[in-house]
Design a protein around this nucleic acid. Structure first.
Lengths: 206, 206, 206, 206
DNA sequence: GATGAATGAGACTTCATTCAT
DNA sequence: GATGAATGAAGTCTCATTCAT
């Protein structure tokens, strides 16, 4: 199903076929932007990563910032698609909250991790207009979080303000990008649970 | 007392007198680096912010990166000095943990907030050698956190691994820089308490 | 024949087609470096001499020093090519020695004179690595001189140590760059003969 | 006697007492200019070599070029003084010619060798006016050479034109600066003799 | 005489972007 | 679509020189 949606978005021109020249460019751009930062990545770096010369980039995207924006759009779309499908399988609030955390963690480690890291870390290099556009895209995403957190408060799973808690969790989760190594001692599962424990009160023992 | 220590560090050349030309430069540099980012701040920006010409900067610091590093050193020293004195007044583990959180939050909002924001956000623009030096400075700081978290676990105030918890809290706290406005509805006290609640289990009701 | 060799070296990328943009750049660079010195020639000087802007230079050469090195490589290659062909036509040792002197004098006055003057006078501005590379190129050249001088000593044309004599002649010949004017009273032929007389004993009168 | 002349020149302000601040500055300047070249030696280099700060240099000399010129003036005066006294002890033309060669070789190796190397190699960095002044100083020096060479031709010791020969010898001798090591296998005496042999016909066999 | 902060011009180099081929 | 030479603005840094203290 998700696949079908993506295909349709590709056909609409929102997303890019990852096999195409543009697609390979975005993949490499995401990787380079994450690794070296947006400003330190030159258009020559981008071009040579996909085997063309720098002048040719501008046949695909109007300018360097458009590439940054496209990377972010791709990252957000794919991350949201995944999150929707994962949430659909959880039916308890705690399960759904755990799924959100897991998805957000995963967003930074999975196929589109580079792109999501770019969304987080290179945000400031988007022009004002670009920031507005991306914010609009993210709105639905943040809405999912807030809905579930409001529900969690209603169920007394959490006590903090959902809006504040969301931001604190966002900071904690995105920062894992800087220190968490999925091949290390701490498993991805354990990390997810630890973060979940931050958010919710432990189930009260009878 | 803290003042005395700072004065002595200034005399030793570790810190810089904020009234001096170098001091004003660092203050302005911190502000600009936080506002525009290190790479987007030109040496001309820095110079004109203190009312000199760009060439004159290099009388005070060997190059632009040295200014970045000096900003970070100042920020860390002042933050640590403050933290030491605040901790000295707390005698319960929970109080000490709360003090740590409050200090770290405050580090981003107080006089040296610009400098600390730079430590967090412009880290990658330090050369390898510079990163080593700054890491060494921060070690003592992180040690304070870990000691208190280990003690908190011993006292069953927290359940998570101290190292992991420290990193999660660090992410959550530093991210507040991007959204928390101390003049808004949410007070600084409330935010501190909310974060404390993330870390510790609430006192069990009898 | 020489022409053919040069053409092949151009195709190999060792030499540069003098008609190309790079070629014109090297010609002008040689002229300017000789006239004003390497350090006093700015990249703007170089660029404007070939009718481009300074930034465009760096499409052709990585940096200013690379231009200096390329000038030297060109100069040495062309000088050696010429010397080989001139030597091939002389069959007595004295004739060959005279040809060496004439060629070296000519190297400073002919088409590649600017480049050779740069080899001699701007040597110190090459980095260590660059100096090694150029020295390697010159080795074959110096070997030609030494072989002929050793042969000349065997034939008792000269008495001095070939190595020392070579260096003395090198100094005497290259210094002509500073005073000899081929349009003056002293002809190029006479100068060549005068230098030859320094080196060899005059033919003994019977 | 030479000492007396120098002392008197110092009193007249032509030369500088080597013990004075100015004197030490010139010694260090000569050394640095020879080692690194005039353009690559900064006024800070000069100042720190004599233990002062760069601004203070300008109490002693109006500008950097004045230091270069002073170094050259010192070098030439001392070299000429020495040459005069050496020539006074030789009474054959061949002996006098040998003394000239020896003195010129020695000029590059003795106490004022740095200064003389600067005269030769950094010449171009003198302004036109400065070049005129130094040329005037050298005139007497060159006159000594020419007189002896004219005499040598009259005595059929040499055959070449004195003016041309002088320039060739000048080139050969000054170039020794780049390769001759007085601590090597070739002695200073042997080198002098080898150069003398270049100039003169060997004594004709009866 | 010395200091050292400041000047201000100018150096080399980088880089996103354009465009004729 | 791709090329690659060229642009031109902007960047960091250097350095001889000045001058108030």
């Amino acid at each position: 199903m998700t696949q079908g949606v993506e295909k349709s978005l590709i056909e609409q021109g929102v997303l890019v076929d990852p096999q195409s020249a543009r697609g390979r460019l975005l993949t490499q751009a995401a990787r380079l932007f994450r690794q070296k930062g947006y400003q330190s990545t030159t258009v020559r770096d981008l071009a040579s990563a996909v085997g063309i010369l720098s002048g040719s980039l501008f046949h695909h995207y109007q300018n360097k910032e458009a590439i940054l924006k496209a990377v972010m759009v791709e990252g957000i779309h794919h991350t949201m698609a995944r999150m929707r499908s994962e949430l659909a399988e959880e039916h308890t609030t705690q399960g759904r909250l755990r799924a959100l955390i897991a998805c957000e963690l995963d967003a930074l480690n999975g196929d589109w991790g580079d792109a999501m890291a770019v969304v987080i870390n290179e945000w400031r290099f988007l022009s004002d207009g670009g920031q507005q556009d991306i914010l609009a895209l993210r709105e639905e995403y943040e809405q999912m979080w807030l809905e579930i957190l409001y529900q969690a408060r209603k169920e007394r799973l959490i006590t903090a303000s959902p809006k504040v808690l969301r931001k604190l969790l966002y900071g904690a989760i995105t920062w894992t990008d800087k220190w968490f190594d999925s091949r290390g001692k701490l498993s991805y599962q354990e990390l997810t649970d630890t973060i979940l424990q931050l958010a919710i009160k432990p189930a009260s023992d009878p």
